[in-house]
């Protein structure tokens, strides 16, 4: 029985423990490092030219779809005048590729506005 026992000296024990700890921590460390060195998750959007937007930049970045859906329901269901129209958007945000698609692709969101509404 005694012959089968693996006997490690202190130095080897420390090395084994260090390797084990490194393996365990690898996933966490990898994401931390990758996140730190990766380029910004936000795609670079160029400045739209034209008049100021209907809402401020921060609101539009995070909630433009809330606004569009609100206006959509108001126009169709309550017969109100449209506060903003998609065709007004394209006056400043001239290209769908450079504005809409760029972000939506980066965050992997599928949307179908342009199946019906024309946007160049």
């Amino acid at each position: 029985m005694e012959g089968n026992k693996i006997i490690l000296d202190d130095k080897t024990k420390i090395i084994v423990v260090v390797i084990a700890v490194l393996i365990i921590l690898f996933p966490v460390g990898y994401s931390v490092v990758a996140f730190a060195i990766a380029p910004s998750a936000q795609p670079f959007l160029e400045e739209a030219d034209g008049e100021p937007c209907v809402r401020d930049l921060k609101y539009m970045r995070h909630n433009h779809w809330v606004l569009l859906k609100k206006v959509r329901d108001e126009v169709i269901h309550e017969a109100k005048q449209a506060e903003v129209k998609l065709k007004d958007c394209r006056k400043c945000h001239k290209s769908r590729e450079r504005f809409c698609d760029k972000c939506h692709n980066a965050v992997n969101i599928n949307f179908n506005c342009f199946d019906c509404h024309y946007y160049p």
Binding site: K87, N112, D115, C116, H117, Y118
Partner: peptide, 8 residues
Amino acid sequence: REDYPTRV
């Protein structure tokens, strides 16, 4: 026409 939506 670009100013009126089509359908799908």
